[in-house]
């Protein structure tokens, strides 16, 4: 089942800011289960990409120091109302997701 995502745009310091939230455990692979004492396998988003009108604008590699349910923000200096923005992500287990919206400052 696809993971829940949210996307929104807003104007910040004269630019369009895109914020995206992915509901994801971001397991570090360093924690142990308190009962079984077994290590909980790592499961975290490794890559998140933002496309502005279908062109790659920015990409970020993420590690385990990013919180659970990541809320990531990027800014697009050339974006304007009505432009299309899309965010895609992939994790270390091969899961992927995407969401898009139309810019509304």
């Amino acid at each position: 089942m696809a993971r829940k995502m949210k996307i929104r745009t807003r104007t910040q310091e004269g630019m369009i800011e895109v914020q995206v939230l992915v509901v994801h455990p971001m397991e570090t692979g360093l924690r142990k289960d308190k009962q079984t004492k077994e290590t909980i396998p790592a499961h975290f988003i490794q890559k998140i990409s933002l496309y502005h009108n279908d062109a790659l604008a920015v990409e970020a590699d993420l590690g385990i120091s990013i919180s659970e349910d990541p809320l990531i923000g990027f800014r697009l200096p050339t974006a304007k109302d009505g432009d299309k923005v899309k965010v895609t992500w992939s994790d270390n287990k091969g899961e992927t997701g995407e969401i898009d919206t139309v810019v509304e400052g």
Binding site: M26, L71, G73
Partner: peptide, 11 residues
């Protein structure tokens, strides 16, 4: 083609 800006929540 984005601004020099990044935000996230850290552990």
């Amino acid at each position: 083609r984005a601004a020099g800006f990044f935000s996230a929540r850290l552990k």
